[in-house]
């Protein structure tokens, strides 16, 4: 037998044993201070979190907080309280255990941040909004730092980073030139930024830290990106054809079909936004469910490879290409 075969068989055996064990053992291995004995080292804890709870916590954090034990306990006495009232009550009565429990649900475990945002948003959206804004800031920071790093050391004899960036920009410019025409190359920065933003957003889901999730998993982000794309398309169509000609193009072929055309334009936003959202959200849920089933042994890497790397890249590319083809339809009508 060759070396390769032995390694493959060993991996297979380890994998099969772990898979079988994972279905029968409800234990997870932890490193740290054992809460029962107080000793530092490896110890086992029993997993009691059901899968539905885990999915709810990941996808509907606000609903999960509202249904949690602590909040329902306080709400039993005062049904019309919001979560802000509950937190204030807990903090004023110095109930340590309840405070610990509720802090597990909040972002950064901080009540003050939650209360600040709760003033504007209310019960059902706060945690989701904080998570989304936090992840969007991280993606924006990555983009800005990347841009500054490239910009700072720009020179005639390029370094590695500059070569890579120029290659990406050049290949994208080629694509834009092919579908929009040589004279419309000034759309490249917008389209490339769109692509990079969505791509980095999707890739961030690969980072295995709890609390880090793709911002594109939130429908608000994708709808926002879709609306921006359609505004760019409409603005450039008006700029190219003139306002009156563009408005008249909605009433084609018959004037009473104008509502249909307008709905068709709006459905573009819904279509590209839901496509991105559905792909990322569906992938995330499948990864979560299967990881939970196999107790986070090996399979999640493969799943992340497919749903995170492959589907994420393809969807980012497709979103950009569709925005570009909408642009091309409006701009290249006269040829």
């Amino acid at each position: 037998m060759t070396k390769k075969k032995i390694i493959l068989i060993a991996i297979g055996i380890v994998f099969a044993v772990e898979l079988v064990l994972s279905f029968y053992l409800n234990f997870s291995l932890n490193i740290g201070t054992n809460p029962e004995t107080g000793k530092f080292g490896l110890y086992f804890t029993e997993e009691v979190v059901p899968m539905q709870d885990k999915i709810n916590e990941e996808t509907q954090p606000d609903q999960y907080l509202m249904d949690s034990e602590v909040v329902t306990k306080y709400k039993a006495d005062n049904p019309d309280w919001t979560i802000a009232n509950v937190i204030e009550k807990i903090e004023s009565t110095q109930a340590e255990e309840d405070l610990e429990h509720i802090k597990e649900h909040l972002p950064w475990g901080s009540t003050s941040v939650y209360l600040f945002f709760h003033k504007f948003l209310g019960d059902g959206k706060t945690i989701n909004a904080i998570r989304m804004i936090r992840m969007m800031f991280i993606v924006d920071l990555i983009l800005i730092i990347l841009a500054l790093m490239v910009r700072r050391k720009i020179q005639f004899k390029p370094g590695k980073l500059q070569v890579a960036t120029e290659w990406i920009y050049d290949s994208f410019e080629g694509l834009v030139g092919e579908s929009l025409g040589k004279e419309n190359k000034h759309f490249t920065p917008y389209l490339l930024t769109l692509f990079l933003f969505i791509w980095i957003s999707n890739m961030i889901g690969l980072v295995p830290i709890p609390g880090i999730s793709e911002p594109t998993r939130n429908l608000n982000v994708t709808i926002g990106l879709g609306i921006i794309a359609i505004i760019v398309v409409q603005y450039n169509a008006i700029k190219k054809k003139g306002l009156w000609t563009h408005l008249k193009s909605f009433a084609e072929p018959m004037f009473f079909l104008a509502p249909l055309n307008i709905i068709g334009e709006l459905s573009k936003v819904v279509s590209i936004a839901f496509r991105l959202f559905g792909n990322i959200m569906g992938g995330a849920i499948i990864i979560l469910v299967v990881s939970e089933l196999v107790r986070y042994i090996m399979v999640p890497i493969v799943l992340s490879g497919f749903f995170g790397l492959f589907a994420g890249s393809v969807q980012a590319f497709v979103f950009t290409m569709l925005a570009m083809s909408y642009l091309a339809v409006e701009i290249n009508t006269e040829e």
Binding site: N56, F274, G278, L322
Partner: peptide, 24 residues
């Protein structure tokens, strides 16, 4: 091909969204 597939995928994505809505 990738763009065409992504476009034809959208009905599947809509049904996924409907399924998620029904479940949650």
């Amino acid at each position: 091909m990738l763009i065409g597939q992504a476009v034809s995928e959208s009905t599947g994505i809509y049904s996924l969204v409907v399924a998620l809505l029904l479940i949650f």
